[in-house]
């Protein structure tokens, strides 16, 4: 409240411009910048682009019994006979993906699951973020720490914990039975509901933080102005607060949606036989069927599908500056 009491100090006197840096300093900072920007790029190149090219290469080869379980294309030693090798490329793995409805079904099911959990996460996270942003300033750092505190425990362990909660004789059912809300334990574990719960729980902080960042930066005077002009608080929320938080909402949705599409651990542990998700299908192809070429093709298709949302995320971050991330 003390901030409201303080009178504005009026137009502050212009500060003297900072000393211009000497030429050596500029050179220093330029090479430092190159280093700082360059290192992550090298990292991405080695650990993202190269593996991706390997996967792409495998996806264009044919299945073989052996180790590795595919016919190599483009062996590095024969890089010279490029044109010849090009003709040997096989797109049949990609064609196969369209033949068997399993792939399309699991892709669609993944997109649906990811969309539904994104919407659910948004519904849970928005009030949460709003509460954080409106909390007294001295409490906010602690509340933020609490929000990301779950990250201190292994993701896997937290998902296992949910198995304990959602089991037929788990905490949730015991609580509901004890409260008398249900007579029979609810079957939640190993259903799609459990998968949704798991995804919403696991990715909630990724939704909360960008929304919080966009809400926290809003000038509280805007709401006063809205009230002053006759807008009651609930209406002012939809007219001012919500539209101004949209970049954060978009960033949060993409941060949840993108990893949720390819999620493997949660559907594997919490889902059941009905749960069809592309991440799980991918895993089955690699490790159960040992069909690396088809599995790689699935991976490439998934990545291509996610390029659109990823570009969107990039833009949302640009405008929202999802500072908390």
């Amino acid at each position: 409240m003390s901030a409201d009491v303080a009178e504005p100090a009026g137009a502050p006197a212009a500060r003297p411009a900072p000393e211009p840096a000497g030429p050596e300093r500029i050179a220093d900072s330029a090479s430092f910048r190159r280093l700082v920007v360059g290192l992550p790029f090298v990292w991405l190149l080695l650990l993202f682009l190269v593996p991706f090219l390997l996967v792409l290469k495998i996806s264009l080869s044919t299945l073989a019994l052996g180790q590795p379980p595919y016919e190599p294309v483009f062996p590095l030693a024969e890089i010279a006979s490029f044109g010849e090798r090009l003709r040997e490329l096989s797109f049949e793995n990609y064609l196969f993906l369209t033949d068997d409805p399993l792939y399309l079904d699991s892709l669609i099911s993944s997109l649906v699951t990811a969309s539904v959990s994104t919407v659910l996460a948004l519904l849970v996270a928005y009030p949460f973020a709003l509460g954080l942003a409106r909390a007294p300033e001295r409490l906010r750092p602690m509340l933020l720490v609490l929000t990301i505190l779950p990250f201190w425990t292994s993701f896997l362990i937290r998902v296992y914990a949910w198995m304990g909660i959602l089991r037929n004789e788990g905490f949730l059912n015991q609580l509901l039975l004890w409260l008398g809300l249900i007579d029979q334990p609810l079957v939640i574990l190993n259903t799609n509901t459990a998968v949704l719960i798991g995804i919403v729980y696991s990715y909630l902080p990724f939704m909360v933080l960008p929304i919080y960042a966009s809400l926290e930066r809003q000038d509280p005077r805007l709401l006063e102005a809205a009230a002053d002009l006759g807008s009651p608080p609930a209406r002012a929320f939809w007219q001012v607060t919500f539209p101004l938080s949209l970049p954060g909402v978009l960033a949060g949705c993409l941060l949840v949606f993108i990893p949720a599409v390819g999620e493997f651990v949660i559907p594997d542990l919490l889902g059941g036989s009905e749960t069809l998700m592309i991440g799980k299908t991918l895993w089955n192809e690699f490790f159960i069927n040992r069909d690396w070429p088809v599995a790689s093709a699935v991976a490439v298709v998934l990545l291509v599908l996610l390029v659109g949302p990823l570009l969107l995320l990039q833009r949302a971050r640009g405008s929202a500056g999802a500072g908390a991330l």
Binding site: P8, D219, R221, L222, E224, A225, A226, A227, D228, L229, G230, S231, P232, P233, A236, V240, P243, L244
Partner: peptide, 20 residues
Amino acid sequence: IPPHKRPVNMMFQSYALFPH
């Protein structure tokens, strides 16, 4: 009486224009 029901209007120091 809440602000939205008062027949006075205010011009804010920071202007508080709606940026969107």
